[in-house]
Design a protein around this nucleic acid. Structure first.
Lengths: 225, 225
DNA sequence: CCCCGTTTGTTGTAAAAAAAACAGACTATG
DNA sequence: CATAGTCTGTTTTTTTTACAACAAACGGGG
């Protein structure tokens, strides 16, 4: 556990909590480490809810899968990211999305019910953690709202431009790298992969962007049609 | 203000807070009432964030609008519902979605920064309110996740069935009423209204459902294809 | 450096959705 | 009860997407 403390300290859930308090807190939350191989599910649709995960290493996707295996990626998490907290805090019984280790990953699992059910002696850092939880949940709300904005665009091109513009804005640069390959990007935007590839080619031909693998560069100020 | 206390007490943000405390709290949060006519925007994309609203009467939609006026409805709120809390709690500067009064509505506006910035003397009910905020935000997360599930279905029919099944499940009955007219439902599911009408007609012909206005009845157990 | 699994791009076809235009039904209101 | 405005359903045309199959490029390991 010790070796992961630097990562754990970057997790927004524990922002502003001193290391000695953090150790107590982790124990109080029943923290346990678990390793997952590449392409293994950490949680699966329909599992009982109750555990919250923190990514210690690797890469993890929160996704929904339909009956035919079509995937819709909700979020991709890097080390320090959390998942499952919404389901726990909303006191829901089963979870709808699945969580997949895209690469070999280490996960810290917390019994998250103990976050809300304050310990008998209300400790200052417990209150801090709940405020952190508010920030995390609010941030995910904004994130989901933006994702909805992307995927409700009418055409594949508009979805792409919406997504890529957001990245350019975040990066503060017209050139940037995205964390998805083509198939994953298609899953994220809920479009067909080949249609997406096709649209990217067309936009490249029209000098709207340059791209290679996960590197993208938007070429000129886009004017709304 | 007094006359709205019964509604305010139903708001999840104030769950478990006694009436005298509630009055103090409202004052502490700078609560102010505002009235809005039908089809007036309460907040508009790009407005400065910082205020959270509680619906006292009427009906309100949180929605996104593109350059051409295409609407995507994120949520519809009844009295007791809250909006704007995520933007405030995430400490974001401007808001992306707009908030529209669909009917003549009364709104309670709170200076929501004061929720997180605890008053100097930490009061018990303030902590309660933050926990309530966690529940609200987590609940909205789940809600948005489900909405994404609906709108990522591939065809209009699948989107409809996904949405209607969820309603049937919530209602615990295969017959139920939805809170949208056709145009609003189309905006919610991000499809063309006439295509939606058309698909409903086909499904009616195929004895999959009965519907009239906002009344729906699913006719037999749907088996996944 | 070659091989093989993976990723990406391309093309053609079939299916589906958007858009537009319109007719009929409904509703509130004077 | 007449009317104007809104809501819903229908049809046709155009645009867009999904699907499938395949070729080319890439990249890591032996």
């Amino acid at each position: 556990m010790e070796k992961y403390l630097p990562v754990i300290k970057t997790c927004r859930l524990f922002a502003g909590i001193a290391t000695p308090d953090l150790k107590k807190l982790l124990h109080c939350l029943g923290a346990a480490r678990a390793g997952f191989e590449k392409n293994c599910f950490i949680f699966h649709t329909g599992d009982a809810a109750g555990l919250t995960g923190i990514v210690l290493s690797g890469r993890v996707q929160v996704l929904q899968e339909d009956y035919w295996g079509n995937r819709s990626i909700l979020t991709q998490l890097e080390p320090g990211g959390t998942f499952g907290e919404a389901v726990t805090c909303a006191e829901i019984q089963t979870l709808q999305p699945s969580v997949l280790a895209v690469e070999k990953s280490d996960i810290l699992l917390l019994d998250c019910n103990r976050i809300m059910a304050c310990c008998s002696t209300p400790c200052a850092f417990h209150t801090d953690m709940i405020k952190n939880m508010v920030r995390i949940l609010a941030g995910k709300n904004i994130y989901l709202t933006q994702k909805i904005w992307h995927i409700t665009r009418r055409t594949t091109r508009e979805k792409l431009l919406s997504y890529l513009s957001a990245w350019a804005a975040r990066a503060g640069d017209s050139a940037f790298e995205i964390p998805f390959n083509r198939q994953e990007l298609a899953n994220y935007l809920s479009v067909d992969r080949s249609a997406l590839s096709n649209e990217l080619s067309k936009m490249r031909d029209e000098n709207i962007l340059r791209c290679r693998r996960n590197y993208f560069e938007l070429l000129r100020e886009r004017v709304r049609k």
